[in-house]
Amino acid sequence: MSAPRLAFANVTGGYGSTVIVRDLNGAVAAGEVLCVLGRNGVGKSTLMKLLCGYLPCRSGHVLLDGRPIDGFEPSARRRAGLTYCPQERPVFDDLSVRDNLSLMHAARQLGPLRPYFERFPILERRLGQHAGTLSGGEKKVLSFVRGLAEDQPLVLLDEPSEGVQWENILHMAECIAAKKAAGTAFLVVEQNLAFAERIADRYLVMDQGRAMLEGSRADIDRGRILGHLHV
């Protein structure tokens, strides 16, 4: 079997002297969705930043298609095939929705986005507006569409459903399913269990910076996950 799209081993790190994430391991294969679950503050977003190169790992390694990318800066990781949709400040507030979607496309054509506009017509209606004027949920949808439309083999989504209407969350799940069928690997950080249950193949449940549960969706008992999500 070939190397997984993304693998991370013994990843530890945080901000400055503060260690948030301790000794995490995981892997995502092509055509697979790994959901990282946990309450807020347990280190999920920190894990994403370590994987994307915004924070240096104190120890451990990150591998893309079996190749270590530890020294890569975020833009180099993107060029190596990793798309990231952050949880906070997910869009360029000062740019129009159109510019947000076409920033990195040479021809600046919106044609390839047509299928997404059919699912999320709100974006097409707001193309000329500054993204800063969108609601929190709308920004998340914009960020999600931008990320998926980049057509990269690996997509990291940090709480894509936060603030999004349930109807659009369902559309997101369908988009992910379609991409997955085409071989894209996903690592999705979530707090919304109902959404996670629709998309996940496997779970990684975190608490206090550490892995609590790990395994396929079928193997992990819902009640035990809830125990880590509830207050």
């Binding site: 919304n192 109902a194 999500l229 207050v231």
Partner: peptide
């Protein structure tokens, strides 16, 4: 009491609304 509150649960686990 807070742990038992359905409103709090909904905020933390996420729901279908």
């Amino acid at each position: 009491a807070v742990q038992a509150s359905p409103a709090v649960r909904a905020v933390y686990v996420g729901g279908t609304k």
